[in-house]
Amino acid sequence: MSSIRVEQLGKAFRIKKKQEGFAGSFKSLLKPLYEDKTAVDGITFSARQGETVAFLGPNGAGKSTTIKMLTGILHPTIGFAEVLGCCPWTERTKLSYRIGSVFGQKSQLWYHLPPIDTFELMSRIYELRRSDYLQRRDEMIERFELAPYMNTPVRKLSLGERMRCEIAASLLHRPQVLFLDEPTIGLDVVVKQRIRRLIHELNEQEGTTVFLTSHDAGDIEQLCERAIVINYGRIVFDDRVELMKLRYMTHKTIRLVVADDPGDMDIPGATVVERSETKVVLSVDTSLTTIEAALTNVMSSRRIIDVTIEDPPMEEIITRMYGDFGEEDCSS
């Protein structure tokens, strides 16, 4: 069963263009110039209940605009969308009882008050049954380990603590679909790990559909089974995360331990990334050569003690992917 269904969804904004400096501002005041910018250009996809989808793309690709349309915040220019059987922008209120959203840059916690007060208000906003709310609140506090911060004003919490409270608050009403817009932005590695684990558990145990935008490779690799990549408002990839890795993984890393100083190495299709006395790290472009050919080349002149072949980290894949988009745009 589809929990999210999107057909030819598009959104264009009218943006005022201004030339540089004060003269430009004055000119713009007398004769403003506008430009239509298409943020989302007729995208189509669907997601099943319980699926974890990463919605990726470079800055300005249209990710946040899409999430805002799917949560009913923005009205589209064209197209159709359905989340849990509701049209987000015409049935926004009905839908919002069943979905949760976390916008990494927009807090729903009251800044001067402790999270426990916001939680209490959330129970009124979502009209939760008192006994169920108390049980759910305690469960969230335990699961997200929030007990030490519940009575501290939000302004005194660290970013990581605040984000955990933020996600817990958005889960209080047991949403069936959770939209996360860059939930780990600005967090340290440990906190990121913890938040990923919690979202993963939630998906496993409650079957919550997770729709996530992020620039963080770890979020995608550890949380999501499917990736939708958007660029300039259009979907350019929609498949399993594993397949995305394969498609954009044109390089492999070979770590070598050699018996003697390896000296200068000139291997066609491979570049030396790192070199010390007996250790060498090579990046092999598999579209130009094979791993076997590269290793044969090394072994012909050097004695190898140990060898490890690795896939590049997700971070590198995303960097390459976004780079490719840039080149495609330049060539077109």
Binding site: Q49, R124, R129, H173, R174, E206, G207
Partner: peptide, 26 residues
Amino acid sequence: MSTEDRTNSASYYSITEHDQPGKLRR
């Protein structure tokens, strides 16, 4: 665990009473 398994195993129940009488009081 596959998506299907998760969907089937997770028994969704709503804890909101927004569609119950007493809207004005709430």
